[in-house]
């Protein structure tokens, strides 16, 4: 059982990141659940989603303690860092979260997701950079399998561009170096 929380400002694509993870996990034959939690604002509020990925039946879809935290902003770290299980993974968006000391019993991967996505001229792809780092750091899926999943996800919506995969692969590479 893997439990993951993706968290950030509303509008940072955090719910979508979780959704892509859930979708690809489902296509990979896993049991999944995705539970959103967001403030009343459609944009700009704090948003998070809880994803469970499992080989067996998922009982409660809610997450208190997680294996992995994908944090797009400071507020996400404030809210969820203490709930990551010892030895768990924390992916931190270092473009926004800076000068912070993290728990020493976590595997922390700092990736400048927002900056990377800007460089790649796909500003809305920061969530994909984060997903790349997360997949690389957790080993949840083979990075190439997941990259194909991202393409399939956006293809199905009829709005894929090669930049999506590039953002994701940049995240994978950043985590490899970290």
């Amino acid at each position: 059982m893997n439990s993951i929380i993706c968290s950030g400002f509303g509008g940072q694509g955090i719910l979508t990141a979780g959704l892509i993870l859930a979708k690809i996990s489902m296509d990979g034959g896993k049991q999944v659940s995705w539970v959103p939690s967001y403030g009343s604002e459609m944009r700009g509020g704090t948003a998070s989603c809880a994803i469970k990925v499992s080989d067996t039946e998922i009982y409660s879809p809610f997450i208190k303690e997680m294996n992995t935290l994908v944090a797009m902003n400071e507020a996400s770290v404030d809210q969820f860092e203490s709930l990551v299980k010892p030895g768990g993974v924390l992916i931190s968006n270092s473009t926004i979260i800076q000068g912070r000391t993290f728990r020493s019993d976590l595997k922390v991967v700092e990736v400048a997701a927002t900056a990377i996505s800007e460089e790649l001229k796909n500003i809305r792809g920061a969530n994909l950079v984060m997903l790349g780092a997360m997949i690389q750091a957790t080993g949840l899926f083979a990075p190439e399998f997941f990259a194909d999943g991202i393409d399939a996800y956006f293809d199905a919506k009829g709005r894929n561009t090669p930049l999506n995969r590039e953002c994701y692969m940049a995240g994978v590479a950043a985590a490899e170096q970290a």
Binding site: W34, I58, P61
Partner: peptide, 9 residues
Amino acid sequence: ASIASMMEP
């Protein structure tokens, strides 16, 4: 409300 908003296969 939770079953309404969550996603599963």
